[in-house]
Computed example of a mutant assay.
Amino acid sequence: MNEAPSSPASLASDSPDGLNSILLLFICLIGVIVVFTLIGLLGSGIAKRTGRRKTPAEWLGAIALLSVCATVALYIWGALHVMFMESDTMREACAKAGGEAKAAQVDRYSASYLPLRFTCRIDEGGSYDAAVPGYVNPAMGIAFVLAIATGAVSVVARDQNRPTSPTVTRGR
């Protein structure tokens, strides 16, 4: 977690972390590519299997892919809230989250990228979170757990349905 003082010169950057916003932008771009790739993979899998009934393992695999897409999309959504904070919107976000009295005492900001968090730090000690919607981290966690669970069950179901190699008997 990086911290930036609230001097006017340091608040001119596009995020509370300055150069870290470049890394976050890169992560967001990779995330968008991953989401579109997974949706394309899912679509091609559905198109390839038309005309026959889907197995439970295939349904679970599709749910796992959609859950991964949801997790990545939620992360991107929350990261964009952190990344595009400007100096005046930082102060507004702190005022909205904690009130004008607390916002007047804020002397610096910090951001955390896992879990996503934008924190307003008070000069007398203490802090409070602002800017990232409250549903992002819990929803991201639920989607991640769902992706892991359905992916694991999909692999187990696929392996159980796989035929074993037949034993070859030789005629005498």
Rank of each mutant, 00 (worst) to 15 (best):
I76F: 14
A95T: 12
S112N: 09
A130E: 09
Y113A: 14
D123G: 08
A93G: 12
K96L: 06
A131C: 01
R91N: 01
R91S: 08
R91G: 04
L80A: 06
I122D: 07
F118G: 04
H81V: 12
L74A: 02
W77N: 13
A101V: 08
G78W: 00
D129K: 00
R91K: 15
A130F: 01
L80H: 12
A93H: 08
A79D: 01
T89D: 08
D88Q: 13
L116Y: 01
Y113E: 12
Y128F: 07
D123P: 12
F118K: 00
S87L: 07
E124L: 05
K102L: 06
Y128P: 08
E86I: 05
G78H: 02
M90K: 14
D88F: 05
D88V: 04
A79Q: 10
V82P: 04
S112I: 05
A73S: 12
L80I: 04
D129C: 07
A93W: 02
A101I: 11
P115D: 09
A97I: 00
C120W: 09
M83T: 07
I76R: 14
C120S: 07
R121H: 15
T89P: 08
P115K: 07
A97F: 05
D129G: 00
E100S: 06
K102Y: 01
P115S: 05
H81F: 05
L74Q: 14
S127D: 01
G125K: 05
A111H: 00
V72F: 08
S87N: 12
A93V: 04
G125F: 02
G126A: 07
T71R: 12
H81Q: 13
F118R: 00
G98A: 02
R91M: 08
M83A: 11
Y128L: 03
